[in-house]
Simulated assay, not measured.
Amino acid sequence: MSSERIPLAGVIGSPIAHSRSPKIHNHWLRTHGLKGHYIPMDVVADDLEQVLRNLPKAGFVGVNITIPHKEKVLEIADLVTDRATLIGAANTLIFRKDGKIHADNTDGYGFIKNLQSAGVDWDARRGPAAVLGAGGASRAVIASLLDAGVPEILLSNRTRVRADALAQEFGKRVRVFDWVQAGNMMDYAATVVNTTSLGMIGNAPLRVPLDGLQKGAVVTDIVYAPLETKLLETAREMGCHTVDGLGMLLHQAVPGFERWFGLRPEVDSATRAAALR
Protein backbone atom coordinates (compact mmCIF):
# COMPACT_ATOMS: atom_id res chain seq x y z
CA MET A 1 0.00 0.00 0.00
CA SER A 2 1.17 3.53 -0.85
CA SER A 3 1.61 5.90 2.06
CA GLU A 4 1.53 8.92 -0.26
CA ARG A 5 -1.04 11.49 0.91
CA ILE A 6 -3.66 12.69 -1.53
CA PRO A 7 -3.34 16.51 -1.74
CA LEU A 8 -6.40 18.40 -0.53
CA ALA A 9 -7.41 22.01 -1.18
CA GLY A 10 -10.61 24.00 -0.85
CA VAL A 11 -12.29 27.35 -0.41
CA ILE A 12 -13.10 28.96 2.93
CA GLY A 13 -15.80 31.58 3.41
CA SER A 14 -19.09 32.14 5.18
CA PRO A 15 -21.49 31.51 3.52
CA ILE A 16 -19.82 29.24 0.96
CA ALA A 17 -22.46 26.97 -0.61
CA HIS A 18 -22.80 29.30 -3.62
CA SER A 19 -19.08 29.09 -4.54
CA ARG A 20 -18.25 27.86 -8.06
CA SER A 21 -14.59 27.25 -7.16
CA PRO A 22 -15.08 23.53 -6.31
CA LYS A 23 -16.60 22.97 -9.78
CA ILE A 24 -13.60 24.63 -11.44
CA HIS A 25 -10.82 22.89 -9.49
CA ASN A 26 -12.45 19.45 -9.48
CA HIS A 27 -12.99 19.76 -13.25
CA TRP A 28 -9.24 20.36 -13.69
CA LEU A 29 -8.36 17.49 -11.36
CA ARG A 30 -10.60 15.11 -13.36
CA THR A 31 -9.48 16.42 -16.76
CA HIS A 32 -5.80 15.93 -15.97
CA GLY A 33 -6.24 12.67 -14.06
CA LEU A 34 -4.63 14.11 -10.93
CA LYS A 35 -5.09 12.78 -7.44
CA GLY A 36 -6.64 15.38 -5.17
CA HIS A 37 -9.86 16.89 -3.91
CA TYR A 38 -11.13 20.48 -3.54
CA ILE A 39 -13.94 21.16 -1.07
CA PRO A 40 -16.01 24.11 0.20
CA MET A 41 -15.66 24.91 3.92
CA ASP A 42 -17.98 27.24 5.84
CA VAL A 43 -15.83 28.72 8.62
CA VAL A 44 -16.78 31.65 10.87
CA ALA A 45 -14.24 34.36 11.71
CA ASP A 46 -13.65 33.21 15.30
CA ASP A 47 -12.54 29.75 14.10
CA LEU A 48 -10.52 30.86 11.08
CA GLU A 49 -7.00 30.80 12.50
CA GLN A 50 -7.46 27.49 14.32
CA VAL A 51 -8.87 25.86 11.18
CA LEU A 52 -6.04 27.19 8.98
CA ARG A 53 -3.35 25.98 11.39
CA ASN A 54 -4.89 22.50 11.53
CA LEU A 55 -5.71 21.89 7.85
CA PRO A 56 -2.13 20.93 6.84
CA LYS A 57 -2.24 18.12 9.42
CA ALA A 58 -5.17 16.64 7.46
CA GLY A 59 -3.31 16.73 4.14
CA PHE A 60 -4.31 20.18 2.89
CA VAL A 61 -1.76 21.89 0.64
CA GLY A 62 -3.61 25.20 0.45
CA VAL A 63 -6.95 26.97 0.24
CA ASN A 64 -8.73 29.83 -1.44
CA ILE A 65 -10.19 32.48 0.85
CA THR A 66 -13.34 34.42 0.06
CA ILE A 67 -15.77 36.81 1.77
CA PRO A 68 -15.61 37.74 4.64
CA HIS A 69 -12.07 36.53 5.47
CA LYS A 70 -9.83 38.00 2.75
CA GLU A 71 -8.50 40.82 4.94
CA LYS A 72 -8.29 38.86 8.19
CA VAL A 73 -6.03 36.15 6.72
CA LEU A 74 -3.26 38.72 6.27
CA GLU A 75 -2.99 38.90 10.07
CA ILE A 76 -2.80 35.08 10.30
CA ALA A 77 -0.36 34.35 7.44
CA ASP A 78 3.35 34.03 8.16
CA LEU A 79 4.40 35.30 4.71
CA VAL A 80 2.49 37.76 2.53
CA THR A 81 3.31 38.68 -1.08
CA ASP A 82 3.81 42.31 -2.06
CA ARG A 83 0.66 42.35 -4.17
CA ALA A 84 -1.48 40.94 -1.35
CA THR A 85 -0.04 43.62 0.95
CA LEU A 86 -0.78 46.35 -1.62
CA ILE A 87 -4.35 45.12 -2.13
CA GLY A 88 -4.87 44.57 1.60
CA ALA A 89 -6.42 41.15 1.07
CA ALA A 90 -5.50 37.57 0.14
CA ASN A 91 -7.51 34.99 -1.76
CA THR A 92 -4.92 32.19 -2.09
CA LEU A 93 -3.02 30.45 0.70
CA ILE A 94 -0.21 27.92 0.28
CA PHE A 95 0.62 25.66 3.23
CA ARG A 96 4.40 25.25 3.06
CA LYS A 97 6.27 22.15 4.13
CA ASP A 98 8.00 24.15 6.89
CA GLY A 99 4.59 24.81 8.45
CA LYS A 100 4.31 28.44 7.35
CA ILE A 101 1.21 29.90 5.69
CA HIS A 102 1.99 31.87 2.52
CA ALA A 103 -0.68 34.40 1.43
CA ASP A 104 -1.12 35.77 -2.08
CA ASN A 105 -3.76 37.66 -4.05
CA THR A 106 -4.51 36.44 -7.57
CA ASP A 107 -7.70 38.50 -8.12
CA GLY A 108 -5.87 41.23 -10.04
CA TYR A 109 -4.05 38.64 -12.15
CA GLY A 110 -7.39 36.98 -12.93
CA PHE A 111 -9.00 40.31 -13.81
CA ILE A 112 -6.28 41.36 -16.28
CA LYS A 113 -5.97 37.87 -17.79
CA ASN A 114 -9.73 37.86 -18.39
CA LEU A 115 -9.51 41.14 -20.33
CA GLN A 116 -6.45 39.97 -22.30
CA SER A 117 -7.96 36.64 -23.33
CA ALA A 118 -11.55 37.70 -24.08
CA GLY A 119 -10.87 38.55 -27.73
CA VAL A 120 -11.69 42.27 -27.37
CA ASP A 121 -8.27 43.75 -28.27
CA TRP A 122 -7.86 45.39 -24.86
CA ASP A 123 -4.90 47.72 -24.36
CA ALA A 124 -4.36 49.24 -20.91
CA ARG A 125 -2.59 52.29 -22.37
CA ARG A 126 -5.48 53.27 -24.65
CA GLY A 127 -7.00 55.63 -22.08
CA PRO A 128 -8.40 56.10 -18.56
CA ALA A 129 -10.31 53.34 -16.76
CA ALA A 130 -13.56 54.15 -14.94
CA VAL A 131 -13.97 51.97 -11.84
CA LEU A 132 -17.25 51.73 -9.94
CA GLY A 133 -16.87 50.67 -6.31
CA ALA A 134 -14.16 50.97 -3.65
CA GLY A 135 -14.31 47.63 -1.81
CA GLY A 136 -11.83 44.76 -1.72
CA ALA A 137 -12.37 43.78 -5.34
CA SER A 138 -11.85 47.37 -6.42
CA ARG A 139 -8.44 47.47 -4.71
CA ALA A 140 -7.30 44.42 -6.68
CA VAL A 141 -8.67 45.85 -9.94
CA ILE A 142 -7.08 49.29 -9.44
CA ALA A 143 -3.68 47.83 -8.49
CA SER A 144 -3.68 45.55 -11.54
CA LEU A 145 -4.87 48.27 -13.96
CA LEU A 146 -2.16 50.69 -12.80
CA ASP A 147 0.43 47.91 -13.03
CA ALA A 148 -0.75 47.10 -16.58
CA GLY A 149 -0.19 50.71 -17.66
CA VAL A 150 -3.59 52.45 -17.49
CA PRO A 151 -2.76 56.20 -17.51
CA GLU A 152 -5.49 57.21 -15.03
CA ILE A 153 -8.17 55.64 -12.85
CA LEU A 154 -11.52 57.46 -12.59
CA LEU A 155 -13.08 56.16 -9.38
CA SER A 156 -16.55 56.49 -7.88
CA ASN A 157 -18.19 54.83 -4.88
CA ARG A 158 -21.55 55.25 -3.16
CA THR A 159 -19.65 56.29 0.01
CA ARG A 160 -17.15 58.87 -1.23
CA VAL A 161 -14.84 58.60 1.79
CA ARG A 162 -13.85 55.04 0.78
CA ALA A 163 -12.97 56.19 -2.74
CA ASP A 164 -10.93 59.10 -1.32
CA ALA A 165 -9.03 56.65 0.92
CA LEU A 166 -8.13 54.49 -2.10
CA ALA A 167 -7.03 57.55 -4.07
CA GLN A 168 -4.71 58.52 -1.21
CA GLU A 169 -3.22 55.03 -1.16
CA PHE A 170 -2.72 54.64 -4.90
CA GLY A 171 -1.63 58.22 -5.62
CA LYS A 172 -2.13 60.88 -8.27
CA ARG A 173 -3.20 58.51 -11.06
CA VAL A 174 -6.56 58.01 -9.26
CA ARG A 175 -9.23 60.74 -9.61
CA VAL A 176 -12.42 60.52 -7.54
CA PHE A 177 -15.93 61.44 -8.73
CA ASP A 178 -19.01 61.78 -6.51
CA TRP A 179 -21.45 58.88 -7.00
CA VAL A 180 -24.05 61.26 -8.49
CA GLN A 181 -21.41 62.25 -11.07
CA ALA A 182 -20.27 58.67 -11.83
CA GLY A 183 -21.93 58.77 -15.26
CA ASN A 184 -19.57 61.60 -16.26
CA MET A 185 -16.59 59.21 -16.02
CA MET A 186 -17.90 57.33 -19.07
CA ASP A 187 -17.13 60.32 -21.32
CA TYR A 188 -13.38 59.74 -20.91
CA ALA A 189 -13.07 56.01 -20.23
CA ALA A 190 -11.48 53.49 -22.61
CA THR A 191 -12.16 50.79 -19.99
CA VAL A 192 -15.16 50.60 -17.63
CA VAL A 193 -15.28 48.22 -14.67
CA ASN A 194 -18.09 47.53 -12.21
CA THR A 195 -16.58 46.09 -9.02
CA THR A 196 -19.77 46.53 -6.96
CA SER A 197 -22.45 43.88 -6.37
CA LEU A 198 -25.05 46.18 -7.96
CA GLY A 199 -26.75 44.37 -10.83
CA MET A 200 -26.15 40.94 -9.33
CA ILE A 201 -29.10 38.56 -9.00
CA GLY A 202 -30.86 39.43 -5.74
CA ASN A 203 -29.18 42.85 -5.44
CA ALA A 204 -30.24 46.37 -6.37
CA PRO A 205 -29.66 47.42 -9.99
CA LEU A 206 -26.70 49.58 -11.05
CA ARG A 207 -28.28 52.97 -11.74
CA VAL A 208 -25.30 54.91 -13.11
CA PRO A 209 -26.14 56.79 -16.35
CA LEU A 210 -24.41 55.10 -19.28
CA ASP A 211 -25.25 57.49 -22.13
CA GLY A 212 -21.64 58.78 -22.14
CA LEU A 213 -20.12 55.35 -22.92
CA GLN A 214 -17.61 55.58 -25.75
CA LYS A 215 -18.18 53.32 -28.75
CA GLY A 216 -15.37 50.78 -28.78
CA ALA A 217 -14.68 51.04 -25.05
CA VAL A 218 -14.13 47.77 -23.18
CA VAL A 219 -16.75 47.28 -20.46
CA THR A 220 -16.50 44.53 -17.86
CA ASP A 221 -18.44 43.52 -14.77
CA ILE A 222 -16.97 41.34 -12.04
CA VAL A 223 -20.52 40.12 -11.33
CA TYR A 224 -21.17 36.81 -13.15
CA ALA A 225 -24.72 36.03 -11.97
CA PRO A 226 -26.26 36.91 -14.39
CA LEU A 227 -23.49 36.38 -16.96
CA GLU A 228 -24.72 39.38 -18.95
CA THR A 229 -25.64 42.09 -16.47
CA LYS A 230 -27.72 45.11 -17.46
CA LEU A 231 -24.46 47.11 -17.65
CA LEU A 232 -22.99 44.69 -20.20
CA GLU A 233 -26.24 44.45 -22.16
CA THR A 234 -26.49 48.25 -22.44
CA ALA A 235 -22.79 48.61 -23.30
CA ARG A 236 -23.05 45.97 -26.03
CA GLU A 237 -26.06 47.74 -27.56
CA MET A 238 -24.05 51.01 -27.57
CA GLY A 239 -21.19 49.47 -29.57
CA CYS A 240 -18.82 48.70 -26.70
CA HIS A 241 -16.79 45.50 -26.31
CA THR A 242 -18.06 43.57 -23.28
CA VAL A 243 -16.35 41.01 -21.03
CA ASP A 244 -18.33 39.04 -18.43
CA GLY A 245 -17.06 38.41 -14.91
CA LEU A 246 -16.82 34.63 -15.01
CA GLY A 247 -13.40 34.70 -16.68
CA MET A 248 -11.90 36.59 -13.74
CA LEU A 249 -13.02 33.80 -11.40
CA LEU A 250 -11.58 31.15 -13.73
CA HIS A 251 -8.21 32.86 -14.29
CA GLN A 252 -7.64 33.77 -10.63
CA ALA A 253 -7.93 30.04 -9.85
CA VAL A 254 -5.00 29.05 -12.11
CA PRO A 255 -1.97 30.08 -9.96
CA GLY A 256 -3.34 28.40 -6.83
CA PHE A 257 -4.13 25.16 -8.64
CA GLU A 258 -0.62 25.10 -10.09
CA ARG A 259 1.00 25.62 -6.66
CA TRP A 260 -1.17 22.99 -4.95
CA PHE A 261 -1.36 20.24 -7.58
CA GLY A 262 1.78 20.83 -9.68
CA LEU A 263 0.17 21.46 -13.06
CA ARG A 264 -0.85 24.75 -14.72
CA PRO A 265 -4.37 24.30 -16.12
CA GLU A 266 -5.87 25.98 -19.17
CA VAL A 267 -8.96 28.16 -18.99
CA ASP A 268 -11.05 26.98 -21.94
CA SER A 269 -14.68 26.52 -22.96
CA ALA A 270 -14.88 23.26 -20.99
CA THR A 271 -13.72 25.10 -17.84
CA ARG A 272 -16.41 27.74 -18.34
CA ALA A 273 -19.03 25.05 -18.87
CA ALA A 274 -17.94 23.23 -15.69
CA ALA A 275 -18.18 26.44 -13.64
CA LEU A 276 -21.70 27.12 -14.92
CA ARG A 277 -23.08 23.63 -14.19
Results as ranks from 00 to 15, higher is better:
residue 3 S to L: 11
residue 3 S to Q: 12
residue 6 I to Q: 12
residue 8 L to R: 15
residue 8 L to M: 14
residue 8 L to N: 04
residue 12 I to Q: 01
residue 14 S to I: 01
residue 17 A to H: 06
residue 21 S to Q: 07
residue 23 K to Q: 13
residue 26 N to F: 02
residue 27 H to G: 01
residue 32 H to F: 13
residue 33 G to T: 00
residue 38 Y to A: 01
residue 40 P to C: 04
residue 41 M to A: 11
residue 41 M to N: 07
residue 43 V to A: 01
residue 46 D to F: 11
residue 49 E to I: 03
residue 50 Q to R: 13
residue 51 V to G: 00
residue 55 L to T: 06
residue 56 P to L: 04
residue 57 K to L: 13
residue 58 A to H: 11
residue 59 G to Q: 01
residue 61 V to G: 13
residue 62 G to C: 11
residue 64 N to Y: 10
residue 66 T to R: 05
residue 69 H to V: 08
residue 73 V to Q: 00
residue 76 I to E: 01
residue 78 D to W: 08
residue 78 D to L: 09
residue 82 D to C: 03
residue 89 A to M: 05
residue 90 A to W: 00
residue 91 N to W: 02
residue 91 N to K: 05
residue 92 T to C: 12
residue 93 L to K: 02
residue 95 F to R: 00
residue 96 R to F: 07
residue 99 G to I: 02
residue 100 K to G: 08
residue 106 T to N: 11
residue 108 G to Y: 05
residue 108 G to C: 09
residue 108 G to R: 06
residue 108 G to L: 10
residue 109 Y to T: 13
residue 113 K to F: 09
residue 114 N to L: 03
residue 117 S to H: 15
residue 117 S to E: 15
residue 117 S to M: 14
residue 118 A to S: 15
residue 120 V to R: 13
residue 121 D to L: 12
residue 125 R to F: 04
residue 125 R to C: 10
residue 128 P to H: 05
residue 130 A to D: 12
residue 130 A to P: 04
residue 132 L to G: 02
residue 133 G to S: 11
residue 133 G to C: 03
residue 134 A to N: 04
residue 135 G to N: 09
residue 136 G to P: 07
residue 136 G to Q: 05
residue 139 R to E: 07
residue 139 R to I: 08
residue 140 A to C: 13
residue 142 I to H: 08
residue 145 L to T: 02
residue 154 L to A: 06
residue 156 S to G: 07
residue 160 R to D: 02
residue 161 V to F: 13
residue 163 A to N: 01
residue 164 D to L: 10
residue 165 A to F: 00
residue 166 L to G: 01
residue 168 Q to G: 08
residue 171 G to A: 12
residue 172 K to V: 14
residue 173 R to N: 14
residue 174 V to D: 01
residue 174 V to A: 02
residue 174 V to Y: 04
residue 175 R to A: 11
residue 175 R to M: 09
residue 175 R to E: 10
residue 176 V to K: 04
residue 180 V to R: 14
residue 183 G to T: 08
residue 183 G to V: 05
residue 183 G to F: 03
residue 184 N to R: 15
residue 184 N to S: 14
residue 185 M to H: 09
residue 186 M to W: 07
residue 187 D to E: 14
residue 188 Y to C: 06
residue 188 Y to W: 12
residue 191 T to H: 12
residue 192 V to Y: 03
residue 193 V to F: 08
residue 193 V to L: 09
residue 195 T to E: 11
residue 197 S to Y: 03
residue 200 M to G: 00
residue 202 G to R: 11
residue 203 N to T: 14
residue 204 A to L: 13
residue 209 P to R: 11
residue 210 L to N: 09
residue 215 K to S: 15
residue 216 G to R: 08
residue 218 V to Q: 04
residue 219 V to E: 06
residue 220 T to Q: 12
residue 221 D to N: 03
residue 221 D to K: 01
residue 226 P to Y: 07
residue 227 L to W: 14
residue 228 E to V: 12
residue 230 K to F: 12
residue 231 L to Y: 01
residue 235 A to I: 06
residue 235 A to T: 02
residue 237 E to H: 09
residue 238 M to K: 15
residue 240 C to W: 11
residue 241 H to F: 15
residue 241 H to S: 15
residue 243 V to C: 04
residue 250 L to K: 02
residue 252 Q to N: 13
residue 254 V to Y: 04
residue 256 G to F: 10
residue 257 F to K: 07
residue 258 E to C: 06
residue 260 W to G: 00
residue 260 W to K: 04
residue 265 P to W: 07
residue 268 D to H: 14
residue 269 S to Y: 13
residue 269 S to L: 15
residue 271 T to H: 10
residue 273 A to Y: 14
residue 273 A to R: 15
residue 277 R to D: 13
